[in-house]
Design a binder for these strands. Structure first.
Length: 468
RNA sequence: GGUGGAGUGGCUGAGCGGCCCAAAGCAACAGCCUGCAAAGCUGUAAACCCACGGGUUCAAAUCCCGUCUCCACCUCCA
């Protein structure tokens, strides 16, 4: 029953031991809502959703905090371009993110704080840092406040770097910094920036630096010491390094485990605005069902690079369709399949082992497919007991992975009843034609249905249909 | 310059000292089933032994050294 996670800070697989027995606190860096959600955002949110679900299956009471960065240079810049209020733009994109998350069955976090809702906590944290001598007000008398990176001896501990090895940009404008490695805790209001984007503080008018937001929000909701901090690999430096430095310098223990998910590449290349190769949530969800997208995003280990290119969704669709097909066949044979309260009791050993080892979802999927094959074999040989066992097992695994197995044909609305009646009529006609050996007619009906997006399956117990 | 990661069958992608003559999926081929298909099952072929060259070990895809190639981070980024 041990559960291990790869901790980026120690760069090792560590057995997970929660601070408080039976409870887990997770802080996840959410998006800066300055644009539309892309495949990378989805993967990141999904990884931690899977982690959360697995911990819940294992009986933990999980508190998941995923923030929304709603104030930032880019938000202001983009709002300036569209002519919207910055907060209106932020809300607009936040809604888009939540829509995508919800489609993908990513459970809402326990708390989803916005950065602008934690300004007092940020100010308090900055004051503690100034007092402790790790932060200073800008040399140029602006409202900027910086963290003195070289004063904090452990700076670089998260990413195993030394300050003097870092590639500092010697040309950069210091803006009142003492050293180029220092980073902003508080940013002075700039000329032309809206009043609504500036808060009054003891240091002057301005807005928060990016890193301080997460430190403040994480400890506000999870306490000064909590279990897991997660985010995308690209946030490891400088964002997480800075978070860790400032929180520790302020006297907080902060996170016990650091998790980083791999990024999504597009045809072997990094996704970026300048390359114009970004794949947005809408692109994926327009091409395939949400469960298929979810399956695809889980097809590589969370720490590996996931490559996106043409055909990946089709492949996921076929693979996932095989699983769904089995569930439909099993349900036809067994009727509705119910699970008891303890989902974990239905999971194969191999599946549990895989999930327990740093959330090895690809290996877990292998176990899922193995079970589907066993179930199909049981179905073909009419072994009802073995079929039920396999079917329950498969449904339990899909449940844990958050993959929707519901039959597309089920549903109780009027339209689906009408549709079923019409299709059943055609199926009856086709079977009559087959009985009369009028295969030209029967094939024509099959083609007609296929053209309409309906596939049919001739089974021992009759003909069944499903939407392709 | 620094830090981290990767190179496994046609493709995706696990494995990270013996259970590996390397999982699972996709694609391919054959058989069973079918009027023919689809779905399903079974089997076959697929990785000149897991980038290349050395080494350690009774034992290496897995550890060490060297080489090559690729990627990421060190600037905003999930």
């Amino acid at each position: 029953m041990t559960f291990s996670l790869f901790d980026s800070r120690t760069q090792s697989l560590r057995a997970f031991v929660p601070l408080n027995e039976g409870q887990v606190g997770i802080y996840l860096c959410g998006p800066t809502v300055q644009g539309l959600p892309h495949v990378g955002h989805l993967r990141s949110a999904l990884v931690y959703d899977q982690l959360r679900r697995w911990l819940e299956v294992k009986g933990f009471d999980v508190t998941l905090v995923r923030n929304v960065t709603d104030i930032d240079d880019k938000v202001l810049e983009n709002a300036d371009n569209t002519g919207e209020e910055w907060w209106a733009l932020a809300y607009r994109f936040e809604v888009e993110f939540n829509k995508a998350y919800s489609l993908l069955a990513i459970k809402p976090p326990t708390y989803e704080p916005r950065a602008t809702g934690a300004i007092p906590e940020m100010i308090a944290l900055i004051e503690r840092l100034i007092e402790a001598g790790y932060a200073y007000r800008a040399e140029d008398d602006s409202a900027n406040v910086y963290f003195a990176a070289d004063k904090w001896a452990d700076y670089g501990e998260l990413t195993n770097q030394r300050i003097h090895d870092m590639d500092a940009d010697a040309e950069a404008d210091l803006r009142g910094k003492r050293s180029p490695h220092d980073f902003a805790l508080w940013k002075a209001q700039k000329l032309g920036e809206p009043e609504s984007a500036a808060w009054s503080t003891p240091f002057g008018e301005g807005r928060p630096g990016w890193h301080i937001e997460c430190s403040a929000m994480a400890t506000k909701y999870l306490g000064s010491n909590f279990d897991i901090h997660g985010g995308g690999l690209d946030l490891r430096f400088p964002h997480h390094e800075n978070e860790l430095a400032q929180s520790r310098a302020a006297g907080d223990k902060f996170a016990n485990y650091w998790l980083h998910n791999g990024l999504v590449n597009v045809q072997g290349q990094k996704m970026s605005k300048s390359l114009g190769n970004s794949i947005f949530a809408a692109d994926l969800l327009g091409q395939a069902k949400p469960a298929v997208v979810r399956y695809y995003l889980g097809s590589a280990h969370y720490r590996s690079v996931l490559d996106y290119h043409d055909g990946v969704l089709t492949e996921a669709e076929t693979a996932f369709g095989r699983i769904q097909n089995f569930v439909s066949r099993a349900q036809r044979s067994l009727g509705d399949i119910h699970l008891g309260a303890q989902v974990i009791d239905y999971l194969p050993e191999a599946f549990i082992t895989a999930m327990d080892e740093d959330l090895a979802i690809p290996a877990a999927l292998a176990s899922l497919h193995d079970t589907v094959r066993e179930g199909n074999t049981a179905l073909d040989s009419n072994d009802q007991a073995a079929l039920l066992k396999a079917a329950q097992s498969v449904i339990a695994m899909l449940d844990v992975l958050g993959l929707d197995h519901s039959d597309a044909n089920s549903g109780d609305n009027g339209e689906s009843r009408v549709l079923d009646a019409l299709i059943q009529g055609l199926i009856a006609e086709r079977n009559a034609a087959r009985a009369a050996k009028d295969f030209a007619r029967s094939d024509a009906i099959r083609d007609q249905l296929k053209a309409a997006g309906v596939s049919i399956e001739d089974a021992a117990d009759g003909t069944h249909w499903s939407v392709i």
